[in-house]
Design a protein around this nucleic acid. Structure first.
Length: 120
RNA sequence: GCCGCUCCCCGGGCGAUCGCUGUCGGGUUCUUCGGAAUCCGGCAGAGGAAAGUCCGGACACCACAGGGCAGCGUGCCUCGUGAAAACGGGGGACGGGUCUCCGCGAGGAGCCCGGACGGAAAGUGCAGCAGAAAACAAACCGCUUGCUGGAACCAGGGUGAAACGGGCUUGCCCGCCGAAGCCUUGGCGAAGGCGGGUAAGGGUGAAAAGGUGGGGUAAGAGCCCACCGCGCCGAAGGCAACGACGGUGGCACGGCAAACCCCGCGCGGUGCAAGACAGAACAGGGGAAGGGUCGCCCGCCCGUUGAAUCCCCGGGUAUUAGUCGCAUAGAGAAAUGAUCGCCCACUUCCGGCAAAGGCUGGUGGGGACAGAAUCCGGCUUACAGGGGAGCGGCCACC
């Protein structure tokens, strides 16, 4: 899917709603949380990169990789009327794109956002 | 050719597919005609440090940006570049050097290297540990000397056993020799004790009241002398910092100002979240006069000076990805990414060639530090690898 600026979560209260009412799963590299909202007309995406992850250069690269993952797999999501927040964890700076993608997909399946590999 | 130092430059390249931000052009749908949603195409899209936010500006506001104090910055001289900070060239003084030359030596001269390099003869302060003693310094060892002390030794005298000789009363007397020990006189006087001299030597230290050589002395000492070094005074010369050279003093009330401080010079404060404009609900605001009260000028004081009160008049703020500030990247918590192929550095291992630097085949690894947030100019810090120039050293060949 195309992931333009209109899909970005920017407001603090949106992040707070997801944190309070949504569901979350933590993996090796990322924490993925989500909240369904039928009022939304599109998928809303948020990525939280804190100073703990690394310096500005590393945080930028991780954010871009996660956006690349979401743009590649976003069309396969079960229901696109939802918030989707990804929080990179501590060891992210050393991880490759493939490792990040594998971990992100695993958490997405645990949240039942994607169909099981065997299902059609 | 290799190695080292200094300075400068680059800091991966090309292509394909799918995306992102801005902008320009075009299409479709919806529309309250302001626009909104969506699609296609063109163009542009991180750095030498974008970093730290340490300096200097531009720009903006604080009423004016004026004086003083405080505070901050800066600091040899000269020339150049620059708006300023700052940077560069040359020179000087100081410090260092495994270098070269001169000298017996202390040292001197040259060459090379270094950088916050005004003032310690205004005041205050600081100096751990070690060491006997460390700032108007000090006697631990050692050396030396006076007094005391008397070991050991030597000499004289006295006493004096045995042996020997003689006498006889046969176990006593006399004589001779005169040992050791003891007593005594004298000599030489060790250790120890008390006191004085001494900074040459040892030891401690970053540093111990200048150094080398000689005289001198009880031993020593700038105590004296020569030379070296140093301080002070004068001074040829030089734009200047400085100072050739001369005189003089037996020689330091030394070090630290990147401790406070003093002196010269510079600096008003806050920073694009500066600030300007547009504009519904809600309620407040602006202008003029006056100089008692309060306050602003973002450390304090002073000076010029403003506002509430009173009179008159009609307009101001939250918020909105608003517009401008604002850029041939960009103003929204902020876009330059993902995947793949080929190549280029660099590199692991296994071979081949070559006298050697090296050349070459295969194979695997593999791209440092790091992401613009108003914009420039500096400084500092981080950084794989590569290239160039200059200088120095070594090796080979001609």
């Amino acid at each position: 899917m195309r992931l333009s600026r209109k899909h970005s979560m920017t407001r603090r209260d949106e992040f707070l709603r997801v944190r309070r009412n949504g569901r979350a799963k933590a993996g090796r590299f990322v924490v993925l949380s989500t909240l369904e909202d039928p009022d939304l007309d599109r998928l809303m995406v948020g990525i939280i990169t804190t100073r703990k992850i690394g310096k500005a250069h590393d945080r930028n690269r991780i954010r871009r990789r996660i956006r690349a993952i979401i743009s590649r797999h976003g069309d396969a999501l079960v229901d696109s009327h939802r918030f989707l927040v990804t929080i990179p964890r501590h060891g992210c700076a050393g991880a490759s794109y493939a490792e990040l993608e594998k971990d992100w997909l695993k958490q997405a399946r645990r949240l039942a956002l994607l169909p099981k590999p065997g299902d059609p």
